[in-house]
Simulated assay, not measured.
Amino acid sequence: MTKPRARDLGLPFPGTTGPLNAITDVPGVAVGFCTLTDPSRKMRTGVTAILPRPSTTPQPVWAGQYSLNGNGEMTGTHWINDAGYFLGPILITNTHGVGAAHLGATRWMINHYAEYFAKEHAWAMPVVAETYDGVLNDINALHVQPDHAIAALNARNPGPVAEGSTGGGNGMICYEFKGGTGTASRQIELGGQGYTVAALVQANHGIRPWLTILGEPVGQIMTEDSLYSGEMGSIIVILATDAPLSGLALRQLAKRAAIGIGRGGTPGGNNSGDIFLAFSTANEGPMPQFAPPVSARQELNIELLDHLYLAAVQSIEEAVVNALVAGEDVATVKPEGLLCRALDGERLKVIFGQA
């Protein structure tokens, strides 16, 4: 049974959402999961896949990246920072699954863009990010394999996005509650044109006393069953938009993810990998080596970016809470014998006067 999302509980998040209130509100974006759960093997992990474009012809995806705190990994970012684009999918998994997911994504790209890889001196550099799930999953057992990345990509769809313990979010903890996958979107109008900004997070960050939801000190009210004495997680934020932006503008958009997660209370702990990527599906076109010597691309007036910044911050704030309210109680495997509690949605309703 699907649990209510944060808005269903009556939480008054600002802004206008897309129809799905998900990253798939951005046209063309699809999300898939491979979720791996087997308590007998201490296995609770998986892979989340995001495909920005549905085309089987390779096209650049314009992007920008920013790290608030670099205690983590997101592959392919050196090229994104230099070139302002990437090709192919984005995958999110656990810390020790990066290599396997990268290999799986590479195999998938070779097959998905078969003609391109057969005829050209092509190379695959997928984006693979991670957060640590070793409290709820035997991360050293290396459960994630290349086929799981391929399965997540093959399961992609442009519809509603499952939250909580799905895909790479399966073994994640957020503010010492069960965390994981969350998503949200915002719709805005600029210059007579409508645009969507949306976020997907893998939320595995924060300690209980920090947790603030829409200004309420939830973590100081719900103090039971805490797990940590200090920060030991991370958060990956993926922002998507159909607004036409340059790589530089997208990097500026990615920076605002720091404010988005900060609204939930985290200061960006030293042991947390807070790593963000923003991409735009606008300006479809061929790979640069096949483009004419001088190419024209549309770009939104930089004076209008504040509207996108606010939409991004609001989407990320809500996505993190969506990940939290989708959680369920899960036993820890390291150390054994503890319980990672779900955030109690009914108590949350009381805090916000909705019960």
Rank of each mutant, 00 (worst) to 15 (best):
T56C: 08
T56V: 12
P58D: 00
Q59E: 15
Q59W: 05
Q59V: 13
P60D: 08
P60W: 00
P60A: 02
V61S: 04
V61H: 00
W62M: 07
A63R: 04
A63K: 00
A63D: 05
Y66Q: 05
L68S: 07
L68D: 07
L68F: 11
L68C: 02
N69G: 07
G70M: 03
G70F: 02
G70S: 12
N71R: 07
N71D: 15
G72A: 09
G72Y: 03
E73L: 13
T75M: 00
T75D: 09
G76Y: 02
G76P: 08
T77L: 02
T77A: 09
T77P: 00
H78M: 12
I80V: 05
N81F: 00
N81V: 04
A83C: 06
G84N: 08
G84W: 01
G84P: 03
Y85R: 04
Y85W: 01
Y85T: 00
F86K: 02
L87M: 10
L87W: 01
L87Y: 00
G88Q: 01
P89N: 00
I90V: 05
I90Y: 02
N94D: 05
N94H: 10
T95E: 08
H96R: 15
H96L: 15
G97D: 06
G97E: 10
V98L: 06
G99Q: 14
A100S: 12
A100K: 10
H102W: 12
H102R: 13
L103G: 08
L103P: 00
T106Y: 15
T106C: 12
R107D: 11
R107I: 07
N111S: 15
H112E: 15
H112D: 04
A114F: 13
A118V: 01
A118I: 00
K119R: 06
K119Y: 08
K119E: 13
E120M: 06
E120P: 08
H121W: 12
H121T: 14
A122I: 04
W123M: 08
A124E: 12
M125Q: 12
P126T: 00
P126R: 02
V127N: 03
V127F: 02
V128Y: 07
A129I: 07
T131F: 06
T131N: 07
G134M: 10
V135A: 15
L136G: 09
L136P: 13
L136Y: 11
L136K: 07
